[in-house]
């Protein structure tokens, strides 16, 4: 058996994977290691090691020079003492919540339409949804400067129709601008998981609801919506997590009131050269993001939506 396998292997042909089969002469445990290795290495070098480095950095007195080996809680003390950090942190979380909420609110009808009324145009609509993501992130953010700026498209239009006689200046370089821009950026990320969840709902379930006396809106509330909760949660996480750490958009359209924690971290690592403080703030975000993550997982478990299927 073994010799036979070797012969076939050396001839460049692999036989069917059976219990005794060796692929290219490598034993099964070896095969397993090879399959897992790329992912494991990726995780170790790009996630676990940087995370350990970050934790270590946050306890250093300084990133450079002789102080770099001195253990210190300075960064943490500073984080808890300086309320500016906490305010910025809360603002970031608040902005992220707003963005996630409105993104899902706007994405849901879109996903609903694609899933239930898209017909043969479904793939076309999906492509239209994704195509903007092919252009650079920076360009898409910059586009909103053109729209929201004081002599931008929106103001020009409002002036032209006479709704206002002075350009609105508060639109640009504000928290609102950050929220609007990010909603626009994230819509495909929320719409896709919701679309997938809605599309997986069997038409028979809606017929059953109707058969049991539900009007269309009742069927939506009692069947369609609960079954789309996994999609909503996925969409929420896809939007919320990257938004908390976002720094490009606030830097470009946010102005002083639109700054987020990400901008400060960026400052600590670049201009401020206070890497331990940057590391501490990064870890604070990490913890702050973990909380809604755990909550979302709990909701998913309770609604039983994830364990669904038939």
């Amino acid at each position: 058996m073994t010799t036979l396998n070797r012969k076939q292997d050396s001839a460049g042909k692999t036989n069917r994977p059976g219990t005794e089969t060796k692929l290219a002469g490598i034993p099964r445990t070896g095969q397993l290691v090879m399959l897992v290795a790329p992912a494991a290495l990726w995780l170790i070098f790009l996630l676990i090691l940087p995370l350990i480095t970050l934790v270590m950095l946050s306890f250093q007195k300084s990133a450079f020079g002789p102080d770099s080996t001195v253990f210190s809680l300075n960064s943490y003390i500073e984080f808890f003492r300086n309320s500016a950090y906490q305010r910025l942190m809360l603002r970031s979380l608040w902005i992220s919540l707003l963005v996630s909420f409105f993104t899902i609110l706007l994405s849901y009808p879109l996903a609903y339409y694609m899933a239930f009324h898209g017909g043969q145009k479904q793939s076309l609509m999906l492509n239209l949804l994704i195509i903007p993501a092919w252009t650079s992130f920076l360009l898409r953010v910059l586009a909103w400067r053109v729209i929201l700026g004081s002599s931008g498209l929106l103001n020009t239009f409002l002036l032209w129709i006479g709704l206002i006689n002075q350009p609105i200046t508060g639109l640009f370089y504000s928290q609102t601008a950050v929220v609007i821009t990010l909603i626009y950026i994230w819509i495909p990320f929320a719409a896709l998981p919701i679309y997938v969840a809605l599309q997986r709902i069997e038409p028979g379930l809606l017929e059953a609801a109707s058969d049991l006396g539900s009007r269309p809106w009742q069927a939506f509330l009692k069947v369609t919506f609960p079954l789309s909760i996994p999609g909503i949660l996925a969409g929420f996480l896809f939007v919320f997590i990257p938004t908390v750490g976002e720094y490009v958009t606030p830097a470009m359209v946010g102005g002083p009131n639109g700054l987020m924690i990400g901008n400060i971290i960026w400052d600590q690592f670049s201009r401020g050269l206070d890497w331990p403080m940057g590391a501490t703030l990064s870890l604070a975000i990490l913890v702050a993001v973990l909380i809604p993550l755990v909550l979302a997982a709990r909701v998913a478990q309770k609604s039983g939506a994830l364990g669904g299927g038939r």
Partner: peptide
């Protein structure tokens, strides 16, 4: 519409609500 008819159906694949 189905929701106003005095009939009920047992579906071929049961169509039970998974949630």
């Amino acid at each position: 519409p189905p929701y106003r008819r005095p009939v009920n159906m047992v579906f071929q694949d049961y169509a039970l609500f998974p949630h």
